[in-house]
């Protein structure tokens, strides 16, 4: 067998592997969706970028079940959905500006299995925020 043949063979295997890795089943890639689009894709795993709706209650009772969190999310297009997350409540949930949530719609709730919080970092270029924290220092 010539070396070039082996190289070609391995390249083909690699190409197939890359294709498999991008296939949607199992560990494949997903897409970012708006809440409205996610609702029309029942049962399909998607990513939603949304905000916590602070006017609705956040339900988390550590004592009765530390693995049940539910809240309402609202996205930039105005879609809202009830989110259920079977894990501990991320402590900075209320302070996040954006939530990147991975999960799927089941019925009318979004069953989320991963939440990434995007928090306004304190040295974000918002002078008001910096001034506020400086005022705290003074106290």
């Amino acid at each position: 067998m010539k070396k070039i043949h082996i190289v070609l063979l391995v390249l083909i295997v690699a190409a197939i592997a890359i294709l498999i890795s991008f296939m949607p089943s199992g560990g494949g890639l997903t897409t970012y969706e708006s809440i409205a689009d996610a609702k029309s894709k029942q049962g399909k795993v998607v990513h939603i970028v949304a905000k916590l709706d602070k006017s609705k209650p956040v339900e988390y009772d550590q004592v009765n079940n530390p693995n049940y969190l539910s809240f309402t999310a609202v996205d930039s297009l105005g879609g809202t959905v009830k989110v259920v997350y079977n894990n501990a409540k991320p402590d900075n949930l209320e302070h996040s500006d954006r939530l990147v949530m991975k999960g799927k719609m089941v019925g009318d709730q979004f069953e989320c299995n991963n939440i990434m919080m995007k928090c306004p970092s304190k040295y974000s270029d918002d002078p008001n925020r910096i001034q506020e924290s400086m005022n705290k220092t003074a106290k």
Binding site: S21, G26, G27, G28, L29, T30, T31, Y32, V45, V46, H47, K102
Partner: peptide, 10 residues
């Protein structure tokens, strides 16, 4: 395109 449903397994 968003990350995989199960990143580690992918």
């Amino acid at each position: 395109i968003a990350p995989s449903e199960d990143v580690e397994f992918s």
